[in-house]
Design a protein around this nucleic acid. Structure first.
Length: 886
DNA sequence: GATTTCACG
DNA sequence: ACGTACGTGAAATCT
């Protein structure tokens, strides 16, 4: 007979994680009575997952009950540092229990016992009856119960990503037996449960000791033989604490559970009860899932029928005679709108919708002037995409005052899938499926039959209309009206102009480079093969590491998932040990230039001899732009790679490339938002900021005493501060000890005390508000700030420090770009803005306009916003991009 | 599709 | 005592 399968769930732990997994949508998930439902929703997601994956015959969810457990009797302060759980969470607990009942799952709690101990006890009983048991929890401690019949599924991220601990996995991961975990905890303590362990002993040391001695008892039995050390002293001193912690860490297996193992049968969903519950909670997705499951599972998800008419030459005149606000849709399947064919077009006015799959309609003059009429207000999804595509038909789309893509991105930067269907579904609008689902993906991409296509287009127009009723209120709630109306929407027009203009690339120049580089690659290759003694693929990190670390016997420095790392920092450390290293570094550099830049760039030159990048305006978490197809924001600027820039040239003879960049904009932003007087003064007095910092942190009296090396270290420290400093990170970056790095940071904060205050304050704000903001109210949610996982939490903290800085700098240059474009038009200049590289704007212009730009561009850039420190702009120009660098 | 490496600010 | 810099995109290789 098949063994019975039991799933045990740590109810409190999973519910709590569920709450924070969907913390960003806390206010989106409310039922009509105002009850928060995010934790209930996420909990149910987890149930769906484990029920379908685990196929249990039996199931139990255990909860904590009562305030005092036997552990409090042992140790007063057990869990003493726990913050009170938020009421938004507490109010959901009873409903999670209701949900479980409706899903046919037993629950159990016992006054003054923790869920852990109930689970331990039940798992032991189940083992005697030969059940196959899986425990689902967010609490690592429970892995002590792992054995051949008991697996622990531990949440990694959220509640649906699980890591399964079997005895083998546990051994591989920690190098000890599951039961030994108790003794490890005894030594290291537990900060979240607030018991101490032995002084100065953390996970690493504890694991080492238990691996060495086998158990806590053995360790203390042999402690006399241990040689004298600080560690030994601490162990002796904290002996009682260790044994107390051991008791606290041990999960009880003999709790008086009044529950028979035969009573845990999983009953399955109680359909009508569950339907009522979902309805009460306003869980539309789960409701519809239930319907599709219960009706016939054969029915594919089909878009709801939406009434529409076909747009044609006969009705277009009448439609475009209307002066009313409208919704406009230009459909393309491919990403690159500079060349993707238009496969559909649609208009929505009030409740009426007209669509067509005939792009030729765009030749209609009435339609053209309607689209170009700024008086007729239009709503779209992705203005820039629509604008650029229509521009290819000589139509200049105007009057757009709502872009659902831009709006949703500003409301939540995680909403960056760029898919209207997905976006609308996120706002509980179910009548439009995602494009990837409708058209398929990659090789399977096809355009469905006409009738279905028209239906899809109509559904898109309704989705945009729906979002137009929802998103403006949210923008207002976030205080983002100005950001939307005066920055992002006008910017998308500016970006469209820049993308359409494109930048000219000299193909012959690249072809020449390709030949030269090819020769060099061949020479290097031959040399490398000779030294290795055989041929191999230098581009393969695997084969390379075999050559270096096995055949040549060099010492590996860093590991990655597949073996030993061969990255630059590793190779740099090995340089000097073998001549092959320098040549590999050379080869790598040349190969990169060749494949990514020379060949890659040539492949994206269009028929007009230009490259037309696309700026992704709704992608980054900080508000920066990104550039794709090709990426013109990472063209080499240093060393040999810089030569590539010689291929970027003006598109007319007698013109030049002109470039202006903000000097130290991020540090200036930091000086402004932190309000730090010392840093502000340094900028006001126009000091070399890195030298100034060096003077301060090295305690010198005058800037002239600063050596180049001091300046270099101070510069790295400044960068570190902007990124959300850690002593380790800084020490790695400038090759000093961690202790020394910590001293730097301390000195830094002493010299710039309000920078320190800012760092503390912004992290605190992220904790209380759940998000951080830039000077223009761009918002980024940081749910991981509450994570119990150190790694995730620290990352969120650094992000909280960095995002307002990087994001505000992005705000500033965006404003400058809009003002710049206006000014160029107003002054009737031929100069054209072509590229943006985060803190730098690149133009082409007739030579005679260069002197004008030299005054104008810095003027516009440094007056974009008024900060408490001056902004500084530097310019350069020349016949190619290479020369336009100061 | 994920991973590694390396280009930029 | 933990284990780390912030934000991106592209090419080549591995699975």
């Amino acid at each position: 007979m098949e063994p019975k399968k039991l799933i045990l769930v740590d109810g409190n732990s999973i519910a709590f994680r569920a709450f924070y997994a969907m913390y960003t949508v806390l206010e989106k998930f409310k039922n009509p009575e105002g009850l928060h439902t995010n934790a209930i929703y996420a909990f149910n997601n987890m149930l769906d997952l484990i029920l379908s994956k685990g196929q249990p015959t039996d199931m139990l969810v255990a909860f904590d009950a009562g305030k005092y457990t036997f552990r409090n009797q042992l140790y007063d302060d057990y869990k003493g540092n726990r913050l009170k759980t938020p009421t938004e969470f507490q109010e959901q607990m009873p409903f999670i229990k209701q949900l479980l009942k409706a899903r046919g799952i037993k629950t159990y709690e016992l006054e003054n016992y923790e869920a852990d101990d109930i689970i331990g006890t039940v798992a032991k009983k189940a083992q005697k009856k030969n059940f196959q048991t899986t425990i689902v929890t967010g609490d690592r401690d429970l892995t002590q119960l792992v054995n051949e019949q008991t697996t622990v599924a531990l949440t990694i991220k959220g509640v649906t990503e699980l890591e399964f601990y079997t005895p083998q996995h546990f051994q591989e991961k920690l190098g000890i037996k599951p039961a030994q975990l108790i003794d490890v905890k005894a030594l290291m303590g537990d900060t979240s449960d607030n018991y101490p362990g032995v002084t100065k002993v953390g996970e690493k040391t504890a694991l080492k000791l238990i691996k060495q001695y086998g158990s806590l008892d053995q360790l203390y039995a042999q402690i006399d033989k241990m040689k004298a050390s600080k560690l030994k002293e601490h162990l002796l001193q904290d002996r009682d604490v260790a044994f107390l912690s051991q008791k606290l860490a041990t999960i009880q297996l003999d709790v008086p559970v009044q529950l028979d193992i035969d009573q845990l049968t999983y009953e399955g969903d109680q359909i009508s009860q569950l339907r009522d519950f979902y309805q009460k909670m306003n869980f539309r997705t789960f409701l519809s899932k239930m319907d599709t499951e219960t009706t016939a599972s054969t029915i594919e998800s089909v878009e709801t029928n939406i009434n529409f008419q076909e747009l044609n030459e006969n009705n277009i005149k009448e439609i475009t005679a209307s002066q009313q606000a409208a919704t406009v849709l230009v459909e393309m399947v491919q990403d690159n709108y500079h060349k993707a064919p238009i496969i559909g077009f649609g208009i929505g006015i009030k409740d009426q919708i007209w669509v067509t799959d005939n792009a030729e309609i765009l030749r209609n003059p009435q339609l053209k002037s309607w689209l170009q009429n700024p008086q007729i207000k239009k709503a779209v999804f992705d203005f820039k995409r629509n604008y650029v595509a229509l521009n290819r038909w000589q139509i200049h789309l105007a009057g757009v005052n709502f872009d659902a893509l831009l709006a949703s991105y500003l409301i939540d930067v995680n909403e960056n899938s760029n898919d209207l269907g997905k976006l609308a579904q996120g706002y509980d609008y179910q009548d439009l499926i995602a494009d990837s689902q409708f058209y398929g993906r990659g090789a399977k991409l096809t355009i469905p039959p006409r009738s279905e296509l028209l239906q899809h287009l109509a559904a898109k127009i309704t989705a945009i209309n729906f979002l137009k009723t929802k998103l403006p209120q949210k923008l207002q709630d976030h205080d983002q009206d100005q950001l939307f109306d005066e920055i992002e929407l006008p910017l998308s027009q500016v970006l469209a102009d820049m993308e359409i203009a494109g930048i000219k690339v000299d193909r012959h120049n690249l072809e020449q480079m390709q030949q030269d580089l090819d020769q060099r690659l061949q020479d290097l290759e031959a040399d490398i093969y000779q030294q290795a003694g055989h041929e191999f693929n230098i581009n393969s990190p695997q084969q390379l590491s075999k050559v270096l670390f096995e055949e040549l016997g060099l010492k590996p420095i860093k590991k990655n998932k597949r073996g030993y790392s061969t990255s630059v920092d590793v190779l740099e450390k090995l340089r000097g040990q073998a001549p092959i290293i320098a040549q590999i570094l050379d080869y790598r550099q040349v190969a990169k230039i060749q494949s990514t830049y020379v060949i890659g760039l040539m492949n994206s030159i269009a028929v007009d001899e230009k490259v037309h990048t696309r700026y992704q305006q709704t992608l980054t978490q900080t508000g920066r732009l990104s550039s794709v197809d090709p990426n013109l924001q990472n063209i080499p600027a240093r060393d040999e790679g810089r030569e590539i820039r010689k291929a970027f040239v003006p598109s007319h003879v007698g013109w030049e490339i002109f470039s202006s960049d903000y000097s130290q904009i991020e540090l200036r932003v930091l000086a402004h938002i932190s309000g730090d007087q010392n840093m502000q003064k340094a900028f006001a007095d126009n000091y070399d900021i890195h030298a100034h910092t060096a003077m301060r942190i090295f305690g010198l009296h005058d800037i002239s005493e600063v050596t180049p090396d001091m300046r270099r270290q101070a510069k790295a420290t400044n960068f570190g501060i902007v990124y959300g400093i850690s002593d380790y990170g800084l020490s790695q970056n400038i090759g000093i000890s961690r202790k020394r790095a910590a001293e730097f940071i301390n000195a830094y904060f002493k010299q710039y005390p309000d920078v320190k205050n800012y760092m503390d304050k912004i992290v605190q704000m992220a904790r209380t508000d759940g998000y951080v903001e830039t000077i223009m109210h761009r918002r980024r949610y940081l749910p991981d700030i509450h994570s119990r996982n150190y790694h995730l939490r620290s990352f969120a903290e650094r992000t909280a420090m960095n995002t307002p800085i990087q994001g505000s700098a992005a705000d500033i240059i965006k404003i400058a770009m809009i003002n710049m474009q206006k000014k160029l038009q107003a002054d009737n200049l031929q100069a054209t803005m072509l590229l943006q590289v985060h803190d730098e704007l690149i133009f082409e212009a007739p030579k005679k306009e260069i002197p004008i730009l030299e005054k104008l561009v810095p003027q516009v850039m440094d007056s974009a916003v008024q900060l408490d420190v001056p902004l500084k702009v530097e310019s350069a120009h020349g016949p190619t991009w290479f020369d336009a660098k100061g």
